[in-house]
């Protein structure tokens, strides 16, 4: 699934990393628990989360993946945006809940890791 299609499906807006909109992603992991995300061995997945802080950006960076989907239109602080831009991480904001985002994207063919 292209990031551009994914963004449309969740009625999203791109916060930063728009240069990655034509890239594709095959897997997703949805969690607010960063400790759990850090156990994921797959690279190149999109993290779907409601946790909006600098550690969600750091977790994406350490996980070696460049994609983050923030649910419920959580505010992206300047610190978060700076960190994401430094590592060329794409952030999309969606007004939908984590449950709804995950459901829509799963139905559209995005694969679970486990």
């Amino acid at each position: 699934m292209t990031i551009s299609d994914l963004c449309t499906l969740v009625n999203g807006t791109v916060v930063c990393g728009a240069n990655r909109m034509n890239e594709s992603v095959e897997y997703a992991f949805a969690s607010d628990l960063m400790s759990d995300v850090l156990t994921v061995k797959t690279n190149q997945f999109i993290l779907i989360t409601g946790l909006a802080n600098t550690q969600s950006i750091r977790t994406v960076e350490m996980s070696d993946t460049p994609f983050l989907l923030l649910c419920r239109d959580k505010e992206v602080t300047e610190d978060m945006r700076e960190l994401a831009e430094e590592s060329n991480i794409l952030i999309i904001k969606s007004p939908y809940s984590l449950f709804k985002c995950a459901g829509i994207l799963y139905s559209a063919g995005l694969k679970p890791i486990y």
């Binding site: 607010d32 628990l33 960063m34 400790s35 759990d36 995300v37 850090l38 156990t39 946790l51 802080n53 550690q55 969600s56 977790t59």
Partner: peptide, 12 residues
């Protein structure tokens, strides 16, 4: 609240 503290760090 930062997304940690679930007792998964040291095992990981």
């Amino acid at each position: 609240e930062m997304g940690f503290g679930a007792g998964m760090g040291l095992p990981n």
